[in-house]
Simulated scan of single mutants.
Amino acid sequence: MTRRISILGSTGSIGVSTLRLLDEAGGDFAIEALIGGRNVDLLAEQALKYRPAVTVLADPSQWPAFRDRLAGSGLDIACGEDAVCAAAGRKTDLVMAAIVGIAGLKPTWAAAATGATLALANKESLVCCGRALIDRVEAHGGRVLPVDSEHNAIFQVLDATQKDKISRLILTASGGPFFGRTRAELAQVTVEQALKHPNWSMGAKITIDSATLANKGLELIEAAYLFDMPGDKIDVVIHPQSVVHSLVEYRDGSSLAQLGPPDMRVPISYCLGWPDRVVWQAPRLDLVKLANLSFSAPDENAFPMLRLARQALEAGEGMTTVFNAANEICVQAFLDRRIGFLQIADYVETAMMRAQLPTISSKDHISRDMSGDRMTLVLEIDVQVRSLVQDLFVSARQHV
């Protein structure tokens, strides 16, 4: 039986890896929808190769070039936000949700109502919407599978039938390019240095998040919702080798871990094959060659984003949206060389202190889920916080 697959963010690293895995693993599959951002050439190449039912370009400014590239192909193509959400909401068997940032929220929310298995690589949707997103997927007969290597690892080793026997979840973090540096040593780091991740090949935003430990903070929030686990039962340890991807510690003293090479194709393949496993030429883990694995506690003085994420989780889902929005705009400002590396956390903390926003109650996801009001509320908070942070930038420049 042919499996139909939609890929939201097909031109990003997760989307490209997904298509390569499908090619390598073979099997009977068809692409229902491909959605790309603004990479016209790559999206057109993918469309011509896989001939999906619909291909959508998100960026309207690139539409003329995209339309010309596919003229005469006979393919159904479209452009813009409405078209993106419509394509994401098409009936299919599996949706790979891999659009980066809050831009992925609307299409992921649309995909959640299709009844498909939702392979979730867009962590921001879960960080901001909490259990509401999971409830929406399950209410329509679907299932959420985590793509992030850490959550995918926990998913593989967590025994849901013995949840009461779990002592804690342990997320591992590589430490990024600045592991071991003090706060003083981080004051003058450059964009180029921050983009040199020692283990993973990722997009610019997530690479900076790894450098600040914001990515691990987002993953902590995500883990709390995915596995219905309070924040005080989720710990983070620095593991520079990125081989142990996370652990579940049980109350009998056993700790179960999933190990693998630092290659995102491994968790992607697990999602594509679940509940089975995909057979492909996966990289092998050579423990003898590795020789040593090390672990240490994170330095939250030098990397306060982890502490701020924990505070946001404790404050409630409204504050997790504040954390995410402020971080997104600050990361972009750092990439644009408008603020320094340490200022990312400074501005995020200020935004969290100044945001006068309602905390979303635990009951809201039940009443708001089907109407879409919850997503609208999250987007309203996001817009307000981005405006607040921009005002903070302007104020800072005026006082220089």
Rank of each mutant, 00 (worst) to 15 (best):
A86I: 06
H399Q: 14
T359N: 11
Y250E: 10
V137Y: 08
K216F: 10
A44R: 06
C128Q: 06
V56F: 02
M353D: 14
I221Q: 07
T2N: 05
N199G: 01
S242E: 11
S125I: 02
V84T: 05
L293R: 09
R136L: 15
F178H: 12
F227R: 10
G104E: 07
A153I: 12
A160R: 14
A345Q: 07
R386D: 03
A53M: 07
W63D: 01
L133E: 06
L259A: 13
R136G: 09
W274P: 13
S371T: 15
S6W: 01
L133Y: 04
L357V: 15
R51L: 02
L306V: 07
T321W: 03
L306P: 09
G176S: 06
V348D: 01
R265F: 03
N292M: 13
Q188W: 00
Q281T: 14
R131M: 14
A111P: 00
A98K: 02
G316R: 01
H365K: 10
V237T: 13
S242D: 07
G203N: 03
A44V: 00
G217P: 04
D364K: 11
N215A: 03
G273F: 02
S362P: 06
Q193E: 15
E81C: 01
E314N: 12
L220T: 15
S17G: 10
L308A: 08
N199R: 14
D232V: 07
L256V: 13
G115A: 01
V137I: 15
L118C: 05
A297F: 02
R397E: 12
A25N: 08
V385N: 12
R337N: 14
E81Q: 12
N215D: 10
G318K: 08
E81I: 03
G141A: 07
I102S: 15
M370K: 14
S269Q: 06
F323N: 12
T114W: 06
C271L: 12
R374C: 13
Q281C: 08
V378W: 09
D209H: 04
L57M: 08
D286A: 11
L42W: 02
R386K: 15
A116T: 10
K363C: 13
T212N: 04
L357M: 14
V144A: 08
L158T: 09
T182K: 05
E349Y: 05
G74D: 03
G217C: 08
R136H: 11
R181N: 01
M353K: 13
R307I: 03
Y225P: 01
I5T: 09
P60K: 09
V95F: 00
A97V: 04
M370H: 13
T359M: 10
L22W: 01
H140A: 15
L8H: 00
C128T: 14
V137T: 11
L256M: 12
S254K: 09
R143L: 15
N39H: 11
I166S: 05
I329N: 04
S149H: 04
G9N: 05
D373L: 12
R338V: 04
Q343E: 15
G89K: 01
Q343Y: 00
K196R: 15
V279R: 15
R136F: 02
A211H: 07
T212Y: 03
P298H: 06
H140W: 10
I366A: 13
L171H: 04
F341M: 02
E45P: 08
I208C: 05
V56N: 03
P230V: 12
P52A: 12
A224Q: 11
A351M: 04
A351R: 01
N324L: 06
